[in-house]
Design a protein around this nucleic acid. Sequence first.
DNA 1: GGCTTCCTGTTGCAGCGCAACATAAAAATC
DNA 2: GATTTTTATGTTGCGCTGCAACAGGAAGCC
Lengths: 167, 167
Amino acid sequence: MTNPAMTDLPHAIFPAPDHDHARCTSTAIAHAEALCAERAQRLTPMRRRVLQALLSSHRPLGAYEIIERLSGKARPAPITIYRALDFLRDNGLVHRIESRNAFVACVHDHGGDDLVVFLICERCGAVGEAPGGAAADALQASSRAAGFTPKSPLIEIAGICAHCREK
Amino acid sequence: MTNPAMTDLPHAIFPAPDHDHARCTSTAIAHAEALCAERAQRLTPMRRRVLQALLSSHRPLGAYEIIERLSGKARPAPITIYRALDFLRDNGLVHRIESRNAFVACVHDHGGDDLVVFLICERCGAVGEAPGGAAADALQASSRAAGFTPKSPLIEIAGICAHCREK
DNA sequence: GGCTTCCTGTTGCAGCGCAACATAAAAATC
DNA sequence: GATTTTTATGTTGCGCTGCAACAGGAAGCC
């Protein structure tokens, strides 16, 4: 499932304000197509449109915000968006930011199981994904010590990203 | 602000099904009173009732669930509950579980700044609070590596607690 | 008492999220 | 290719979350 196009370009964890967003978007779409083809999943027009709406920014969007960005034609009902999001999430193409009740497109290429830390910039709203390998071990240990059998940990950190800090 | 009553009793991270819940509740209320007195904050009847509703279980409750548990008299509007919750959260007496959009009473005694890991049992719904000291360092490092200036990390882990696993 | 500050009640609204059912489109089977 | 089955989308409706704005009331301060 690894797509070279997503790994050879070493994404900064926070996309720079002047990055080549068109390419960034088309790469992600291409990755989604490849992945769905490989899994015999259907990237329908609706699902693609929702993904593109999310890719139009690196900010998490709510369902209603997505609807607004799906310009043209009739505006789909919220439930339609949620169903598309469910599909995209199941395939690791979209993440849910729990602390915002919103969604971001995933522009990284990571397995479904490894721990991802979401860094949320309070100023520009962008979301970065940092690898959480080291923290994963500590959390495993903490959980086990409590007799707890953990599934996927959820980590979200609010703060200020490098690009906003420079200003 | 440290209350001996809350520390001398070494709370298991997950309260056992047969724990002395009456004492567990009264201790928490006493702690809330002491803390508010110390800070010259007012633990009004409404705030106390909301806290007690949350203490009636170790499960996170939504605003409407809280309203239902505030039996007697007129049912307060949701906004009233949210205001009480804001107060209780500001004083560290209540935590918000983002992945559930719900709230739990805090039955531990930790400073406002140290990292807490919420363990959420998918079977019984109980929420435990584990210390996240070790993970905190790893997350700091991860964030810094991304040029990110972190504030308080949010960690929630779903899984199965020890008491549910035994069955 | 009079003033300020804080708390609660009321009304209203917007977003989130899904259940249940109906319809349409694609896949699979024959 | 026609029929059945599966899968995706549209429609309606509803309940929960969360807050803004305003009004009244209670507690503390001078």
